[in-house]
């Protein structure tokens, strides 16, 4: 099976509330795709639609080219973690995985494998009600891995994880993608995915706002702005203006230079013999780039609430 998720023009409304408004994107194999957006942007709804749990008014969602509901043993094709707390507290973590395994015709041995893989081997036979949220997230990931699926879909897997857990999860997701799987991870906190995701699907108000690689997004959000500290302010301004840069004075000995990359600034100043003590190129973080993209959606919500 091809390791892809294809979501095409999903539309869904609860009464007058539009949850999905033409959601369209594709998740490719071999990388972690971050599925980000503010709360209520339609991330979870989209995932439920992909899993055949929620109906849509229009649009299609395909996993490996097939509708989820047509899969005989779906957990062998798609592993999903929707809500880590969705388990019976009296049932042991192992039994929680065991019934899922039985439903796919998998053996109990596989349950022990994924428990080991997620670091739960020692607590598997304890009641799941006593698990911390972090352990439940691991159990949820273990469930998603049961069928060794080429496609993984995890909804907010970082929720409730401690720093060590977050690090573990990042490495785990990267490793899974490196094995050639398509991995879709939703989050409302961009920073969690900074070093993990290779691709980004940003959603707001039920549709895709940006569908881009992480590198491109950061580059796009970072303008050519260089901060320069120099005692020879006037000379520096003259030299830079001559090559077409826009220069502004921010402090007594600090200038900001727009329209010229940092390496050019250094060359121009050196050639003109202007001394400078510090030069810094400004680079947007993923967080800033994301905030920029979702600003509209967030603002809309804020005014809606204020009204």
């Amino acid at each position: 099976m091809e390791a892809t998720i294809e979501v095409n023009d999903l539309r869904k409304a609860y009464g007058s509330t539009v949850a999905l408004d033409g959601m369209t994107f594709t998740v490719a194999p071999g990388r972690v795709t971050a599925f980000v957006g503010p709360n209520g942007a339609g991330k979870s709804t989209t995932m439920r639609v992909v899993l055949g749990l929620d109906r849509v008014d229009a649009g299609t969602a395909l996993v490996g080219g097939r509708p989820y509901r047509s899969l005989r043993t779906p957990l062998r094709h798609v592993g999903a973690l929707l809500d880590a707390s969705a388990l019976h507290p009296a049932r042991s973590g192992r039994d929680h995985l065991l019934w899922q395994a039985h439903s796919q015709g998998l053996r109990g041995q596989r349950v022990d494998e994924v428990l080991k893989l997620t670091g739960l081997a020692d607590v598997g036979r304890r009641r799941a009600g006593g698990y911390s949220l972090g352990m439940r997230q691991r159990l949820g990931v273990a469930g998603a891995l049961l069928g060794d699926p080429p496609v993984l879909m995890l909804d907010e897997p970082f929720n409730g994880l401690d720093p060590e857990g977050i690090r573990w999860m990042r490495g785990f997701l990267r490793a899974l993608a490196a094995e050639g799987r398509a991995v879709l991870v939703s989050s409302h906190l961009m920073s969690e995915l900074q070093d993990t995701a290779g691709h980004l699907v940003v959603v707001g108000r039920g549709k895709v706002v940006a569908d881009t690689s992480v590198a491109d997004l950061i580059a796009a959000a970072s303008s050519d702005r260089v901060t320069l500290r120099t005692v020879a302010r006037t000379e520096a301004m003259t030299a830079l203006a001559r090559v077409g840069a826009t220069v502004a004075v921010t402090e007594r000995d600090t200038l900001t230079v727009d329209g010229l990359p940092a390496d050019r600034v250094v060359t121009v100043l050196s050639e003109a013999g202007v001394p400078f003590s510090e030069i810094a190129a400004h680079r947007a973080t993923l967080e800033e780039a994301y905030m920029e993209l979702t600003k509209d959606a967030v603002e809309f919500r804020a005014t809606e609430v204020a009204r």
Binding site: R48, L51, G52, L53, Y68, R69, S70, L71, P74, L75, A80, L82, D83, S85, A86, L87, H88, Q100, S103, Q104, G143
Partner: peptide
């Protein structure tokens, strides 16, 4: 009903779409 209350029914129906 415990499955409905805890959302576990989604895990059930994800495992068995029918």
């Amino acid at each position: 009903t415990t499955e409905f209350r805890r959302g576990m029914v989604r895990t059930t129906f994800a495992a068995t779409p029918s």
